[in-house]
Design a protein around this nucleic acid. Structure first.
Length: 488
RNA sequence: GGCCCCAUGGUCAAGCGGUUAAGACGGCGCCCUCUCAAGGCGCAAUCACGAGUUCGAUUCUCGUUGGGGUCACCA
């Protein structure tokens, strides 16, 4: 049987990396077995409609490289793929259950339910008291006829226990008394998420339900529905949650479900900060899953490799903490592996902003590739090219290279006229400086340091002395060197 | 609070009765070096605790502790 999985986000206008990872695993589970991956939009909550939110979903999947086989924008045999367009479909199913005595009309007002909850003893939580579960038929008919608002509730078993097998967590058993008579159809006639989910998954032929572990305890309710209809229960693959780490007001480190307070958690937030979509995907693929066999210990994966290597048995059961440092490292790995063309395509906007032309591209790539972990860092790393800081003369003093004010003065004084007559290429500049050092019996460091400092005006530059001079151009470089000498 | 799940270094994690308990990120040190990186080499750091089972437990069972999840006319 062909495997079919689905990603069923609700359009909130924001794609959390946790949701993205779920989508990724759903995609991988299907594709590893040559199955289909379906996109379904769950928008039954009328109060939460967000304009343009579905576009965020499409764009995320597209830039993440997760392509669905069927969806609102890719018609298949199970459409429509938007729940709000399937509304007429759900109620008949619920009514069928009512007829069969597996569900019932409930006329309890929201006020009554709220009061019920409030009456619960301190520290406890109570569910619905099943007030309408066994109403006399004539009372039901009367209320229906006079138009009393109602919801349809599922009749959950009152005793015993329900067991199912999850592909990653194994056997899960829940006492039936823990199960509420969940609402299937809301007062507005719309299905609840749980109900629509089951109907859709079944009618769309979903074979493997992949979702977060927060559904572990409510799954028996889903199964009760499948059983009520006599449908085959899908394979469940529950995923461990993604956590974030933060420090509370007492300085204690606390771990909790990943949220905004842990930093950027939206896919596009991360992209805007300079994280590459492939790196993000690669990183989250490894958050909660470990490859085995020939792929064991491998860290860098293309999507095709992920598809080949993915295996349900490698999915972890315990929650994992999102580690921005590791993501950063991985992003750098992707940058280092880029071709020159690709690197340039990402870097060019920053070069343009700094006024660095194409004659510098090769040198810039060499300088930047091992030094940036995200492209936006280019601006800061090369700020010295754009403007010379009003630096302090103390910068010329460097203990390790033995550079001092005096030595710097002498060296700049000697070297400036020489550079003035020097051909402006890396080879020439480097040999001029090293030969000067050799002639004076100075360490290279002693002469390179002051030249670089005078040219850049900052202690840290992404490259050496010659590279800095080259980026500046002869005229500007000499102007800065003269300025530096005048400070000494 | 009831119920469910989880538990290997700071983090991601391999392990699936007998191992010197992998690897990666991060940290630290050394090398390289004009700064910062990158790269190379190396170091520190883990089986939460307590009972069992067993010739032998990180591994199996139970309990404790800790963490997470869940108890909506939200999805």
């Amino acid at each position: 049987m062909k495997i079919r999985t689905r990603f069923a986000p609700s359009p909130t206008g924001f794609m959390h990396v946790g949701n993205l990872r779920t989508a990724l695993y759903e995609y991988l589970v299907a594709k590893h077995e040559g199955g289909d991956f379906i996109l379904r939009i769950e928008d039954t909550d009328q109060e939460r409609f967000v304009e343009g939110a579905t576009d965020v979903i499409y764009n995320t999947l597209k830039t993440a490289g997760i392509t669905h086989d069927e969806g609102p924008d890719k018609p298949g045999d199970c459409g429509p793929y938007v729940q709000s367009e399937r509304l007429s479909l759900y109620k008949p199913y619920a009514e069928q259950l009512v007829k069969e005595g597996k569900a019932y009309y409930c006329f309890c007002s929201k006020e009554r339910l709220a009061a019920l909850r409030e009456s619960a003893p301190e520290g406890t939580v109570v569910g619905y008291d099943r007030h309408c579960r066994d109403l006399p038929q004539d009372e039901i008919d009367g209320k229906l006829a006079s138009g009393v608002p109602y919801v349809i509730r599922q009749k959950s078993p009152l005793t015993g226990e329900s067991t199912y097998v999850d592909a990653v967590y194994g056997e899960i058993t829940i006492k039936n008394e823990e199960l509420d008579d969940q609402i299937l159809i809301k007062e507005d006639g719309f299905p609840t998420y749980n109900f629509a989910n089951v109907i859709d998954d079944h009618t769309m032929g979903i074979t493997h339900v992949v979702r977060g572990s927060e559904y572990l305890t409510s799954t028996p309710k889903y199964n009760a529905l499948y059983e009520a209809f006599g449908w085959e229960i899908p394979t469940y693959i529950h995923l461990p949650l993604i956590m974030g780490k933060s420090v509370d007001e007492n300085g204690e480190t606390v771990v909790s479900k990943l949220s905004k307070r842990h930093g950027s958690t939206g896919f596009f937030d991360l992209v805007n900060e300079g994280f590459l979509p492939q790196a993000i995907i690669n990183y989250i693929a490894l958050l909660g899953w470990a490859p085995a066999g020939e792929y064991e210990n491998r860290e860098i994966f293309t999507m095709d490799e992920l598809i080949r290597a993915f295996d349900i048995h490698g999915i972890s059961k315990s929650p994992s903490v999102f580690d921005y440092d590791k993501l950063e490292w991985m992003n750098a790995e992707y940058i280092k592996a880029m071709s020159s063309e690709e690197f340039l395509s990402y870097a060019k906007p920053y070069y343009d902003d700094l006024g660095l032309g194409s004659q510098h591209y090769e040198l810039l790539e060499e300088m930047l590739k091992p030094r940036i972990t995200r492209f936006p860092q280019i601006t800061e790393k090369l700020q010295f090219v754009k403007e010379l800081e009003n630096y302090s003369v103390e910068l010329f003093v460097h203990k390790k290279s033995k550079s001092s004010i005096e030595s710097s003065r002498e060296i700049l004084n000697d070297v400036i006229p020489m550079l003035d007559g020097c051909s402006w290429d890396r080879e020439s500049i480097t040999s001029l400086l090293t030969e000067y050092a050799a002639a004076k019996e100075y360490k290279n460091a002693l002469v390179m340091w002051p030249v670089r400092i005078a040219a850049a005006g900052v202690a840290v530059t992404p490259g050496g002395c010659a590279e800095v001079l080259l980026l500046l151009g002869k005229e500007e470089a000499l102007r800065r060197l003269d300025l530096g000498l005048s400070k000494l």
